[in-house]
Design a protein around this nucleic acid. Sequence first.
DNA 1: GTCTATAAGATGATAGAC
DNA 2: GTCTATCATCTTATAGAC
Lengths: 197, 197
Amino acid sequence: MIMLAKDETTSTRERILDIAQRLIQSRGYNAFSFHHLAHEIGIKTASIHYHFPTKADLGVALLRRYRQRFGQELDGISANNGNSVRSLVRFAALFQRTLSVDSQLCMCGMLSAEIESLPKPVAIEVKRFFSETELWLTNVLTHGRREERLAFEGSPRTQARMLIAMMEGAMVVARGMRHNAYFQGMARNYLLQLKAA
Amino acid sequence: MIMLAKDETTSTRERILDIAQRLIQSRGYNAFSFHHLAHEIGIKTASIHYHFPTKADLGVALLRRYRQRFGQELDGISANNGNSVRSLVRFAALFQRTLSVDSQLCMCGMLSAEIESLPKPVAIEVKRFFSETELWLTNVLTHGRREERLAFEGSPRTQARMLIAMMEGAMVVARGMRHNAYFQGMARNYLLQLKAA
DNA sequence: GTCTATAAGATGATAGAC
DNA sequence: GTCTATCATCTTATAGAC
């Protein structure tokens, strides 16, 4: 059996998705082309079309994978402990980690900005990401308040949306100001405000 | 003297800026073209180039106007009263109003997402917008805390950034979830948290 | 200031050979 | 699965006439 270098074990399809994801999170859906993908992989654009007939197909496949992976991260956070404060810290760390790689945005934050110019099937996937994340956070916040680890105004659902908004917004602002470190300051302070006294 | 309809009193240059602004705030910098502008005004793309030689020139001019107008709005809020709570409510209303028009984003929120694919001179203007807004908010928050109208964790500067982040993020999330009304819930609740007990 | 004409390059996509 | 070849279309931009 022939041993393959790690790169070669990854299917072309996966490599396309990987590169497309990186390009979308750093430059946006409208700023990357099949040519960019093909060039980086070392194949031709026609080959990209073999794996994903249209750009919209690629976008949908990418978002399905992204939502699935993000969901797994959230499951991992939920499984390890029942401490809601710790869960929120780990939640924020997911975004922090993304921004730390070439100032990348959350893919759905980026696509939400571009949503009016996206193919409808892609837009639907973006919406699902926010709904799923809202649901997970709502549970964490509900339990945290019940256990008196967390204290906040308004409903857990509204707070969940606000926490997502703070993450997405903090990434956008830190990026726009060209100081990624600003993100931590905002995230940390926001979580501090949610902690019960 | 010939009376002109209101549209005709606006110079072509201003009309280009108006349409470009609307297109950027709804679709993004990379999703609009000189052809879109020309078509809507009823002229040819070559005429757009007469007013703005390159797309980057148009972007810079647009952002200068945007920053100037936004600064005037902030001045207006500062001038009318010394009540910091009321100032923050009016600040949030600026973003609320923008989102209510065709789900438009703050221009600099949009451009910050696209920043890695923007001409450098445009990116610089985006950065200035955030710095100026941060400064104004820092003053409001500092005075508000001193007067004990506001109470919050951390420095006024960090809170200023968080408030901008919440506005930008709330727009992005409301847009992505396709429920603009979510914005109000988030904004109102966030300001509530800043109010002194 | 606006037009026609034109250019060079990018882009998304398809047909058919290997 | 990947290639060559080709396509129509879009995009930014320039030259020069009116």
